[in-house]
Structure formats: structure tokens, C-alpha cells
Write a protein that binds this DNA or RNA. Structure first.
Length: 558
RNA sequence: GUGCCCGUAGCUCAGUGGAUAGAGUGGCAGACUUCGAAUCUGUUCGUCGGGGGUUCGAAUCCCUCCGGGCACGCCA
């Protein structure tokens, strides 16, 4: 999967290295270690196709002026080994390369050959990575924060896959622990109320209407016979019933949101297999725990954390933290993932350091875990921010959102900003201006191309393709953007930010629309027309691939 | 109080050591007898939160202060 662009860049980097070595051989300067040579694309066209700042990196190491070094590199640079036409020194010591005009056209050949795979690389070398996201509590429906996590997590999984990783998408079902207890108490109270028994509702219980609905339906099916049951027993029955319903609903909603998981991992399974107890014992055996006030503590402070944390409470019930350690050990050791990426809300950021510390303590490197912390979504309604709480039951659910703004818009919108940006979701605006949503801008470009290709049915198969006819600024600029796709995807992986792909999509669409208004595809000049048809086809491939990554439809008509 | 995230155009955000800080949106002025005007073109808009420092060069790195969010539990 060697793309034209990477070959062209590599040649230049190699030749810059050679030039520096030649200068050293001639005794112009000395250098113990050569820093990495980076080629960047200059903002201004006048500075050529690529530039490097290497001459400005070297003064410290060589004790020579940057311009002197730049001149040495340029005078030793052998253009014939590259696609370079012109080398210039500019500003404080930039070396700017202008390429021969024909080089970009082979990008179009790359795209045509790889088609639906264009953009894929072997960057990840098949390393196994687990992406865990949303992992909403199954005690109720998913909310807008989960929607953001879903768009980010699924997008992240896609760019990893496109970069040559072996990816597993996973949902961690928190079906154990304290909140399940509360869930059971809430269900029980509603059941009794539904059946005419006056009881007080638990103060910190789940107040959402969904709890009552569950128990209404349950009563219709099973009647009121549980009124006289043992409390503990009936709670378990209610929990099992409602949990299954909720998980079903979560799967259904996520299907409507375009997200399919490979693995649904039950927290409760970690207790069934005793993995939680085993991991606590393993930490103890390694000497990283102690007892205090009847509880077992993890010595997180030994691993750079600010305070220690409880693993097992004084009532012998393990904490969520203990289960989470067992879960990550299960991912990284039992199942052998090389890398675990979790998407968490900002309210959990304090958990990151101790989680990594625990993995270090267990002898697995905490570096194998990366957590994408996304800032919380704040809901704005009628200009006012609304607090959302599952227990208060006043939230906007994922299915509400999809119903109002549509799957594509929601997916696009939640991947518009980088995860760490604070995000105000103005519901009124999203509903009211849904036609102005940028998702349509990108989809429109795809539909427009499809329309063009539908209409240009004239048989051009006898005409040879001559890409060099595509020589306007708009055409060349468009081709350059198309060439970036594989690197944009890799950058999204490196920065752990799939929203880069959304912005890239808009960039492609924008350049296409500009081209469309400047150049006519249908012309009397059949050779030119053929070349433009091929260009337009390439744009469609890139748009489609990008929309696949984002989980958004690429419509042929709209 | 301590830790983390954020502060860039009227608004929403890119840019995290390079050249004259960019998009979208809004405002203004234009472009369809011609491949889809859900589009395009031009134009307006900046104490990069304030101050100090590091260096050839800082929105970007360091220090400090201000403002907003989150966390600091034997909750998850």
C-alpha cells in the first residue's frame, strides 16, 4: 500500500539526508545525530509543494547559521533522484520544494485502483486493539452524552481498522454493583405503588418514568403476586426482567444509530469467573495492597497517584475499581489485546491515573491503556442549560435525538468537534436548522457527483485518459486534497481524534463544489471530459469512503 | 484548597514550535436560458483570556494570575 504521495515525500527526505551527509563529508560542518526530517505542506502556494525546517533545527547541533546549512543542503541536492523541479531557500531558512507538474496525476490512479479501499494503510501492522465505548449503565435509556461517546468510539474504531489494526468494538455492561441495587429498589417501590401499596420511594433511586413503565408491563404479565414475596427475591426477579428489556432497547437504539458491537461484556461475568477476587489476590501477592478499617486498599501512591483507593469494602463487597482492573486485565492479558482504548466522560477522568497505576502494579504496562476523555455534553434549551440526570429522569434520550435530527446529522454533529472540546448541544437550533447542518453539505456533494455521472452516459470508453489535461488551480487543488486521505486517517489514530475525518470530509466537499463551479465536466472536448469524469469519480470514492468511516449514508440522490 | 480539561473573529470551532493566525456561521455585495443554487465568488470581522519568561522564531513550551467546566466517595 505505497501511495504516490508517500513515495514522493520519502524520496525527498532521503535526498535531503544525502545532501547533509555530503556536506559533512566535505567538512562543511559536523553532526553527531541527525534529527528526523519532516516535510510539511506550506500554507502559501508560493512556498512550493513541500518544505522542511531542518536547516533551522541544525544550528544548535552544528554551530553554523541556518541559512548556511540550507545553502549546503540545496547545493548538494540531486533533483534527478526525486520529482523535484525547483529547490529554494526562503525566510529564516526554510527549504521549499516545488515538484514537477505531472506528479499529482498518479494519485488518481491510486484512487481508481484501490477504490473502496483507498485510504487504507498497514500503519497498525495488525496489532490487536480493543475499543470500548458508551458502556452506559443498563439501568435506563441512553442519553446525549452516550450519543457523543458512540460517535467518537465508533469513529475511532473505524480509523483504526482503516489504518491496519485488528479492531474489536466492545460494550461493557455494568450489570453488577451498587447502582443495580438502587435499580432493584426503585423497581420494587414502583411495583408496589403500581399494585396499590403505599411505600416511600428511595431517595436516591431512579425516578425516571421508564421504571414505572417496566413495572406496569410486568404487572400486566405477571400480576400482583410479588407484593407478598420476599423483598430480596422479588428484587432479583425485577432486575433480571428490566435489565434484559433495557439491554434490548440499548441494542436497538444503537442499531438505529449505526453502531454494531463485536462484544457485549457483562461486568457480572467477572464475578462469576472469580476474576475480581483473583485480581485482588494477585495485587496483594505482589505487595501492592494493605488493610485499613476493615477494607483492602490498593497502594496507588506507590505508582505516582495522589491517594490510595479501596478495592474491597469492609463489607467484603469489591468496588467498581476492583472490577474495572479485572476487566482491563481480561482485555490485555486473557484476551491478548495489544492496546485498549476507552472512551470516558470527563466526569471519570480522575479514574484514569489509578487505572493505569493498577495495570503497572499487575505487571501489564499502563501504557497499553489509552483513555479518550470527552467533555460532557451540555444541553441547551431555550437558551438555558439543562442538567441531565438519569436518576432525576429529566434527560433527552438517544432515541429522542435521532428522531428529531436524524441519525446522519447526529453522527456528524457529535464528530464535528474534538473530544476534549466542551460541547453545547442546542436542541432548538438542531431541530430548527437541521437543513443547515453541515452533514448535508457533504452528502450533497456526493449526490451531485452521482447525478453528473448518471447524466454523462456518452460512451467515453474509446477515449484514452489523459490526466494532465486537469491543469486548472481548482483541479490540482482538489487532487491534492484527495491525496491526503490515508494520512488524515493515520493522524486521526495518532491523535485519537476521529473528528478530524469530519473536517476532512467538509474540506473535500468544499473543494469539489469550488471545482464544480469553475470547471464544466460536460464539454465538447472529449479528452478533457474524460479526464474530468475520472476526477469526479475519484472524488466520489473519497467522499464515500469518508462517509463510511463516519457511519453516515452516502446518498446518490437527495 | 489540590488535580485535569477549556479560553482564538459577533457566535461555534480548527491550528499545539515555523513564514502574513484559518474555516463555518452571521453581516454586506454578486453568480443559474447551460452537468443538482442544499452550491459558488468577493468582502467585513482578531489585545490568540491578562502578565512575565524560554529562543533565530510562541496561539503553541514554562511560570503566574483571571474566568468557565469536571473531579477529588468503602458511588460508578
Amino acid at each position: 500500500m505505497a501511495y504516490t504521495l508517500s513515495i514522493v515525500k520519502e524520496q525527498i527526505v532521503e535526498e535531503v539526508k544525502n545532501s547533509i551527509e555530503k556536506a559533512i563529508t566535505k567538512g562543511e560542518f559536523t553532526l553527531s545525530e541527525l534529527p528526523e526530517i519532516l516535510l510539511e505542506t506550506p500554507r502559501e502556494k508560493q512556498f512550493g509543494d513541500f518544505s522542511t525546517n531542518i536547516a533551522m533545527q541544525l544550528p544548535k547541533l552544528t554551530k553554523k547559521a541556518p541559512r548556511f546549512i540550507a545553502e549546503e543542503i540545496v547545493s548538494n541536492f540531486d533533483k534527478s533522484k526525486t520529482e523535484v523541479e525547483k529547490v529554494e531557500i526562503a525566510g529564516p531558512g526554510f527549504i521549499n520544494f516545488t515538484l514537477k507538474s505531472g506528479w499529482i496525476y498518479s494519485i488518481l490512479k491510486d484512487i481508481k485502483e484501490m477504490s473502496n479501499d483507498y485510504g487504507k494503510t498497514d500503519y497498525g501492522k495488525g496489532r490487536k486493539v480493543n475499543v470500548e465505548f458508551i458502556s452506559a449503565n443498563p439501568t435506563g435509556p441512553m442519553h446525549m452524552g452516550n450519543a457523543r461517546g458512540g460517535a467518537i468510539g465508533d469513529g475511532m474504531a473505524k480509523v483504526l481498522y482503516w489504518s491496519g489494526y485488528e479492531v474489536v468494538k466492545e460494550f461493557y455492561i455494568n450489570d453488577a454493583g451498587n447502582q443495580i441495587e438502587k435499580f432493584g429498589q426503585s423497581l420494587e417501590a414502583r411495583y408496589l405503588q403500581v399494585n396499590g401499596v403505599e411505600v416511600e420511594f428511595p431517595e436516591d433511586g431512579y425516578k425516571g418514568e421508564d421504571i414505572t413503565i417496566h413495572m406496569n408491563e410486568f404487572t400486566q404479565i405477571h400480576g400482583n403476586k410479588y407484593v407478598d414475596y420476599d423483598s430480596r427475591e422479588r428484587r432479583e426477579i425485577f432486575i433480571a426482567y428490566a435489565l434484559e428489556k433495557n439491554i434490548e432497547k440499548i441494542k436497538e437504539d444503537l442499531g438505529g444509530y449505526g453502531i454494531e458491537y463485536d462484544v457485549w461484556f457483562h461486568e457480572s461475568s467477572l464475578y462469576e469467573t472469580d476474576e475480581v477476587a483473583k485480581i485482588v489476590k494477585e495485587l496483594s501477592d505482589r505487595g501492592h495492597t494493605y488493610e485499613k478499617d476493615g477494607a483492602i486498599w490498593f497502594k496507588a501512591t506507590d505508582f505516582g497517584c495522589e491517594k490510595d483507593d479501596v478495592l474491597v469494602r469492609n463489607n467484603d463487597v469489591p468496588t467498581y475499581f476492583a472490577a474495572d482492573i479485572a476487566y482491563h486485565v481480561n482485555k490485555l492479558r486473557t484476551r491478548g489485546f495489544d492496546w485498549s482504548i476507552d472512551v470516558w466522560g470527563a466526569d471519570h477522568h480522575g479514574h484514569v491515573a489509578r487505572m493505569k497505576a493498577a495495570l503497572d502494579a499487575i505487571g501489564l504496562s499502563g501504557d497499553k491503556l489509552d483513555v479518550i476523555i470527552m467533555q460532557l455534553v451540555r444541553l441547551v434549551r431555550k437558551g438555558e442549560t439543562a442538567r441531565m440526570s438519569k436518576r432525576q429522569g429529566n434527560m433527552v434520550t438517544l432515541s429522542d435525538l435521532i428522531e428529531e435530527v436524524g441519525k446522519d446529522a447526529a453522527r456528524f454533529f457529535f464528530n464535528l468537534r474534538s473530544p476534549e472540546s466542551h460541547f453545547d448541544f442546542d436542541l432548538d437550533l438542531a431541530v430548527e436548522e437541521s437543513n443547515d447542518n453541515p452533514v448535508f453539505y457533504v452528502q450533497y456533494a456526493h449526490a451531485r457527483i452521482s447525478s453528473i455521472l448518471r447524466q454523462l452516459e456518452e460512451d467515453l470508453s474509446n477515449v484514452d485518459v489523459d490526466y494532465t489535461l486537469l491543469d486548472t488551480d481548482e483541479e490540482k487543488e482538489l487532487i491534492r486534497i484527495l491525496a491526503e486521505l490515508p494520512y488524515e486517517i493515520i493522524t486521526a489514530v495518532e491523535k485519537m481524534d476521529p473528528s478530524r475525518i469530519t473536517r476532512y470530509a467538509m474540506d473535500v466537499a468544499s473543494n469539489f463544489h469550488t471545482f464544480y463551479n469553475a470547471c464544466r465536466v460536460r464539454t465538447d472536448d472529449k479528452k478533457l471530459m474524460k479526464a474530468r469524469v475520472e476526477l469526479v469519480k475519484s472524488v466520489r470514492i473519497v467522499l464515500k469512503n469518508v462517509l463510511v468511516i463516519l457511519g453516515i449514508k452516502a446518498p446518490e440522490r437527495m
